[in-house]
Amino acid sequence: MRDIKIGVLGLQGAVREHVAAIEANGAGAVVVKNLEQLKEIDGLIIPGGESTTMRRLIDKYDFMDPLKEFAISGKPMFGTCAGLILLAKSVEGYEEPHIGAMDVHIERNSFGRQKESFEVDLDISGVANGFPSVFIRAPHIVRVGKNVEILAMHNNRIVAAREGQFLGCSFHPELTKDHRFNSYFINMVRKQKDYY
Rank of each mutant, 00 (worst) to 15 (best):
K177T: 13
G130H: 04
L122I: 07
Y184Q: 01
L38N: 03
P173Y: 04
F166N: 06
L38H: 05
A160W: 05
R56A: 06
M188H: 04
I141W: 02
P66W: 06
H179K: 08
R180S: 11
Q37L: 06
I6E: 01
H98Y: 15
E69N: 14
G48C: 03
A152H: 04
K68F: 13
I58C: 00
K33I: 09
F131N: 08
V91D: 07
R108S: 02
L44R: 07
S73E: 05
R16D: 15
V104N: 13
L38C: 06
P47G: 10
D42Y: 04
N34Y: 13
G164D: 02
H140I: 07
V148A: 08
Y196E: 14
I72A: 15
E119Q: 14
V31P: 07
V127G: 00
G13C: 07
R56H: 08
Y196S: 14
E95F: 12
D62K: 12
F171L: 08
S51G: 01
I72M: 11
F70P: 05
K146G: 13
G79M: 09
A160Y: 07
E163C: 12
I72N: 13
I6K: 04
I6N: 01
H18A: 04
V15R: 00
I22T: 03
H154Q: 09
D59P: 00
A71Y: 03
Q192N: 15
I6S: 03
V159K: 01
V148L: 08
Q12Y: 05
S170M: 04
E149V: 01
V30M: 09
V134M: 03
A160L: 05
T52D: 00
N25F: 05
T53I: 01
L35Y: 11
Y196I: 10
L151G: 03
V142F: 01
G100S: 08
R137N: 05
K75F: 04
A20R: 12
I41P: 08
A138C: 09
L67S: 13
E149H: 00
Q37I: 06
M54K: 00
F63P: 11
V159D: 02
L35T: 13
G74L: 04
I72P: 03
V120I: 15
D123Q: 01
M64G: 04
V148S: 07
G28L: 05
G7V: 02
M188N: 10
G145M: 09
Q165T: 14
R143E: 15
A161G: 01
D62S: 14
E119P: 06
G43I: 05
E50P: 01
S110Y: 11
S117V: 03
G93W: 10
I6P: 06
G164L: 02
K60G: 09
M1S: 15
E163R: 12
Q12I: 10
L67T: 12
F185E: 06
G112N: 00
D123N: 08
G130N: 13
V15D: 02
D62V: 10
K193P: 03
A20T: 09
E23I: 11
N182H: 13
L175P: 00
R55Q: 11
V148T: 13
I99M: 05
R2F: 07
G7Q: 03
G100M: 11
K177V: 12
S125H: 10
S110G: 14
N187D: 15
V148P: 06
L84E: 05
I85P: 00
K75C: 04
V148R: 09
S110R: 14
G145S: 08
I136Y: 00
V134H: 03
M54Q: 04
V104A: 14
M77F: 12
D62Q: 15
C169M: 15
A27D: 02
L38K: 02
